[in-house]
Design a protein around this nucleic acid. Structure first.
Lengths: 173, 173, 173, 173
DNA sequence: CATGAATGAGCTTTCATTCAT
DNA sequence: CATGAATGAAAGCTCATTCAT
């Protein structure tokens, strides 16, 4: 039973992560200080270490959080019984929605950090690959059902996601 | 008349910039130390300050260097008397070629640094805008000559360049 | 009348001290954290402050505890009606027994802590001196009764205790 | 050729080590701050890192330095053509002289630090063992030549060195 | 009484920058 | 021009201590 306390801690961690992501997205890992993150939440540096082992850990958990949300969403789309075109449309819509609503979180993912341990890195890349595979699944299904042209799936996926990534650079619409 | 000495210094500066870009691209601005850059060139930290006022200046000049090359190339394409389709093809080819041959330099441009002075930032954004405009010019010309569909120029340009940017993430083909 | 409650608290304090001594002996004062001590007893840091005013106090009381035991024992030996040789033998035996059975506690005494208040320091040194004096008494008595050679009492006592202290360094016999 | 520069650096390192030892001996590893060590030499914290990789490294090199001196001296005694009694006398004299003249350095050796890497620890223990062996050699030689009683060499050596160690506790003679 | 959470002071370490030689 | 050495500001992290619940 995830006790009341455990849930309260989880809430706080998420609060911190969201705040951290804002700064991290803007200034990058090395450009962001723990003090800055804490200050935004009217906390002190020291308190952060009650919730996260260290800076790397904080960033890592940010990665995990956003990736898990992303995966949850695209999984639902892929497993729905829409036709490939609708699936692709929804997947893109979801991606864009998340990329804009959780802009900071999303940008944090930009570059898996160098300081990550091998274990952490592996975990992140695994989730990343999962996400790509879901995308590929939609494309492949479309090709099989002949609603999409017979393209190089990986290449097309990269182009699409690359194009979408551009969104984050746009300051105002 | 740029004396012999001046030209020798310029050579050295470029050498440094290229080396710096390699590290900067990989580790980001704050993740890169002057020592690291210097070590790669068998120099000492101190010497670098003869060629560049400070770390920001070094990064700034890296930006300038690659942007100037980029602009030079696309300018030639735009002013050529090819048809829009050929122009776009060449511009993309040029972009990709540069993005791969000068990969590091290119990646450095990723995010204009926060430490830049307003003046520097303005200068960089100006060059950046110039580059975009050259692209837009090609697209606009194509639309006017009715060889391209009537699309939202800015949007299409962003999608194209966004897709191209994906290239840098690709490790091997 | 030391109430039931008071006695229960005293028990707990001793329990803590003994556990603390283990860690303190191994890692030294500054190398030991309150957390570590608490964890060993399945307590939380905070709880310790109910029993001890602060870290210094904890260490101080450790000192006191072991010194009081030591003094009790040697006092009995000195006041017994054994002959000097037997007294010395018993005193050494007692010292070694305590130094091995309460190894951690004993090692804690190694160096009176710098953080101690003058008052605490004085108290500790007083007990220490008492212990030395008991030893000297045995030696002096032996010399007077001409069962020991006529040696420099202090010097010999230091050599003996110094040699005994070596015991703690021995890992296995 | 150990250049002029190299020798100058070595001098400085020794100067730092000697100063560091003073504080380390008095306050222990964790109780000593880099700032304190630096201040004593009218340096700044930062400068110390030009000469030593980190705090552990500084302590480690202190260990090495005093051990090497100790070994040098006892080696000469052992290899001399004195008789065992004279050898033992000289070895003890040397030990005491060093323990008093380089009191701080000597005390630093008290406890091999916990933070040492396995490699460092091994190296230190090796030197320590060497020192013990030289002592044992003298004792063994004396026993063989029948100028010493037939005692347990290791035990006697530990008692002797233990007794000598007491010297450091003596504040004034 | 016990504890979870917060705090702040202090520590080690890094690094851009400077400057005498 | 180049460099060895020094500096100081700032960062990450630890931990004794406090206190509301």
């Amino acid at each position: 039973m995830s006790s009341f306390r455990a849930r309260k801690i989880e809430k706080k961690k998420q609060e911190i992560m969201r705040s951290a992501a804002t700064v991290l997205a803007e200034k990058g890992y090395n450009g962001t200080t723990m003090e800055e993150i804490a200050a935004k939440l009217l906390m002190t540096k020291g308190s952060m270490y009650y919730y996260f082992k260290n800076k790397d850990d904080l960033l890592y958990q940010c990665h995990q959080m956003i990736m898990e949300i992303s995966l949850d969403r695209i999984e639902k789309v892929v497993n729905s019984d829409l036709n490939p075109i609708e699936k692709l449309r929804n997947a893109l819509k979801g991606h864009i929605l998340l990329a804009t609503s959780e802009k900071s979180m999303f940008m944090v993912m930009g570059k898996p950090n160098q300081n990550f341990s091998d274990l952490q890195l592996q975990e992140i890349l695994k989730l990343r690959r999962s996400y790509s595979l879901y995308f590929d699944k939609i494309l492949t299904e479309g090709i099989e059902k002949q609603v999409f042209d017979h393209v190089d799936v990986k290449m097309v996926r990269m182009i699409i996601l690359g194009a979408l990534n551009w969104i984050q650079e746009v300051k105002s619409i």
